[in-house]
Design a protein around this nucleic acid. Structure first.
Lengths: 352, 352
DNA sequence: CGTCTGCTTGATAATTGTCAAGAGGCGTGG
DNA sequence: CCACGCCTCTTGACAATTATCAAGCAGACG
């Protein structure tokens, strides 16, 4: 599908000129001739990018940017200013307000197109739907090489294989890497004074872990252990910082990820406080099986009882007893230690 | 104390000129004459701001910025590029890499100083120590007016008074404001299917709440209720977005805040799973009393038992029984319903 | 003065953890 | 190939913890 671009420019000649250039380059273009109609156009057209003059009658470029950045639907549309020769003052103001780029008049076709393409390419990397929680982030990390921003960016990161049960890091370690799971499964957990373990997360293929400690540059607050032979890509701390702090879009994504996690954990907390063991075990089972998705569906899942117990925050024996109950109630089936769901819905909706 | 500025510039005349200007303006200035020594200088001197030429032999300005942004200690030092006339290409590249401003040669004293001061002022707002979790963020929000970025920024937000027990918002509402507590106390909580309530947070004077839902623009995941007559300042959604998304520094702060919260909640989860009611009640009591800090120290704190119970995730009666135990053990004192800590340390360190 | 609300204690039942012991599977070394 | 030890899974018995229902008491308030 054609990319949509909105142009806001009061000068007729210039406006038509830009429209023509962009249409020739295969974009779907609409234009407005002042700030106010421009804002309406953007709200209506929801373009992939806005090119906007700064000096305009009625509502100037800054006003347009301000209005658009107030609405979540339009806040993240890339915004390129047109400015009559680089006025530092304007530039500074625009940057502070969140403009993405500047094109100074007069400009030629190539300049215009290259500025637009560079910006669209960049937004493409991060605008992917948020289905797999870290997809966008990942793309940004791994495709970054192709943007050849700086030569010294190592194109390949360290890759290591970890055997089942081996420790990736321990609570209290200083963070040195961001980890990306290429294959296998990792659990992160915390241990209390009595040595009881609570699993916080299970990371399967294609996910990142270990960034909270990196962000704060503090000791790890949890431990990570392999529960299925894994291959991890380790992105060094320094790379992580330059990726994170260099780019506003990555920061935004990261904020979304963190607040999603936060909400999820609030839910967990409520469950842990008041749900019966029965419900907690059911939830843990569902969560674990989902994170094992695509394994051995026919035969059922081989999941260590201890992991279920530690995820549900209960003792091993109680957990096993509850599983036996589920078995009697025909909710699950156990065969050779492998668990198969018979009535997933009932497990999810469990009343008591 | 004098602000420290590092200058990296290969041209002798220009370098000495800048040094002189800045020293006359009361800064503590050091200079390096190429990129490599410049990086060493910054690592050593840890300035409040770096002014750096782009075109230099040995290691150019981009290289310097890249190296500095890899190290957490130097990643957030404001970075101003000197560039020979606004080359759009360089500017774009620099912005992508995280430069904060550009000064184009030739420039006069006023330009240089104003760029530096504007940047330092901005960083000052957010660089405050992170003692009260949201102080920095707050400053940014409320002082923003003084930066007079855009006239249309309303200088005063809606302010409302809430009586004890009144509801600020309910789980499932759509977010419309970011809330700032000017006085009083608010609790946020979730309710499970049986109607049991778990308190997630207590917000006292000078703190913000309600932003997770705003960030994701989704329905509220918790409810908020007043537990002590409160005065709330309500920052409309649209303002929130333009503040958040317009500024990289705010984004960074927000990430820190979120990951701190996330870590704290992981700890909570562990406690909720395995700690005895005794420990949970002790923790809840400490947390609540801390959030009531500065109230009526001498007489003890008037805290509803129900709130302690809901924070600890236990039944009201059990909570009261546990408090009675604490009283017998001389850990606390209860007089006219007011609770006073006698042995805070013992409560914190409680074994069983 | 009555009524309401919040705090406290008692009795009892339900839930969950702990200790103990046995069954079955799996790999290893003889 | 088999026996052995080790590990995980499972069940039983019992004790400890915690919730629930019920009732009384004190202070606040109209």
């Amino acid at each position: 599908m054609k990319k949509k671009i909105a142009i806001i420019e009061d000068n007729l000649e210039l406006r038509e000129n830009i429209e023509e250039i962009l249409e020739l380059n295969g974009y779907d273009v609409r234009a407005a001739d002042n700030g106010r109609t421009g804002v309406d156009l953007v709200n209506d057209f929801l373009p992939d990018l806005v090119v906007c003059d700064i000096m305009m009658p009625i509502l100037d470029g800054f006003g347009v940017l301000h209005l658009l950045s107030k609405q979540p639907e339009t806040a993240s549309i890339p915004f390129i200013f047109l400015t009559a020769k680089a006025e530092r003052h304007d530039m500074r103001k625009g940057m502070e307000m969140g403009a993405d780029d500047f094109i100074t008049k007069p400009f030629d076709d190539i300049e215009l197109i290259s500025a637009i393409e560079s910006r669209l390419r960049k937004i493409d990397l991060i605008a992917k739907p948020f289905s797999n929680r870290l997809n966008a982030f990942e793309e940004l990390l791994f495709r970054r090489g192709s943007l050849k921003a700086v030569e010294s960016f190592a194109s390949s990161y360290e890759k290591r294989e970890f055997k089942k049960k081996s420790i990736v890091y321990l609570e209290g370690d200083w963070p040195r890497y961001l980890y990306y799971v290429k294959s296998g499964k990792i659990k992160t957990f915390k241990t209390n004074d009595d040595g009881k373990e609570l699993i916080l997360n299970i990371y399967g293929e294609d996910s990142f872990f270990g960034f909270t400690a990196l962000i704060k540059d503090e000791q790890m607050a949890d431990s990570a252990q392999v529960i299925e032979d894994a291959e991890l890509i380790m992105i060094p701390k320094s790379e992580f910082y330059s990726i994170i702090y260099g780019n506003k879009e990555v920061l935004k994504k990261l904020i979304e990820i963190l607040s999603t996690d936060l909400e999820k954990q609030e839910g967990q907390l409520l469950k842990m406080a008041y749900n019966s063991v029965r419900k907690r075990v059911a939830d843990a089972l569902i969560e674990l099986i989902d994170s094992y998705s695509g394994d051995l569906k026919g035969k059922g899942y081989k999941i260590a009882r201890e992991n279920i117990a530690n995820y549900a925050g209960t003792s091993l024996e109680t957990c096993i007893r509850t599983l036996s109950e589920f078995k009697e109630n025909k909710l699950i089936e156990i065969e050779g230690g492998r668990i198969r769901l018979l009535d997933r819905e009932a497990l999810v909706r469990l009343k008591i």
